[in-house]
Write a protein that binds this DNA or RNA. Sequence first.
DNA 1: ATGGTCGCGCTGCGA
Length: 259
Amino acid sequence: MKIATWNVNSIRARLPRVVEWLRAAAPDIALLQETKTLDETFPRSEIEDLGYNVALRGQKTYNGIAILSKAPIDVLARELPGEPGDEEARYLEGFSGGVRIASVYVPQGQVVGTERFAYKLRFLERLARHVDTMLADEEAWVIGGDLNVAPNDGDVHDPEKLDGEVCFHPEERARLRAILWRGVTDAVATFHPEAGYYSYWDYRAGAWTKDHGLRIDHLLLSPQAADRLRDAGIDRGPRGLEGTSDHAPAWAELDGPDR
DNA sequence: ATGGTCGCGCTGCGA
């Protein structure tokens, strides 16, 4: 089964790109981030017409995540535990096709040292604690999304210049690596350890043309899911189209009878 | 070149 994640930067603005991507890539499960709309204004029928079930946790203007799956979806959680009062729509977890899956949109952090950056660090710590509880179940799960952290030097185009900047700050990288050290597999890095294998290019400053990207979109696998990992990668194609997201989809192919 | 471009929704914020 193929599980993909894509920060679409508004599902309503991106619908034609998302529809053509779902047709071409045909993931069994697609995890979306930054849908930027309430559940009642999500283009549900257009997605369902492609053969997907839809689970949503929307928000007006900002954030918003979704799980699309060809199999029925049982929603398990609509928020990441650990911060009561956090109203931002950044986490949705379900069970579909025999796999536990989560779509996550980690806060970008804005500027190092701000409250938004502190919120990002807290969010990554909440994710680590939740991973601990999920690891205890010893089942196959995949957490996919825009984690807004580039873990390795090769995941940014200029590691010396960007060291200490948002998305490549040591405190963020330590928190993501702490999750990986628990025995979680970075699916894309497993098949593409090479430098410069990016998932995001800023709209500004010709970043796409100059290939000044970041690898910040990730698929995290439990050991039981990693045992079934056959291949993984990033589809650059959609990023080069007109009217597209500033992120490219990442995907992982798992062996197994479940669909 | 300390710049630059999107989306939302109608002014500036978030990324």
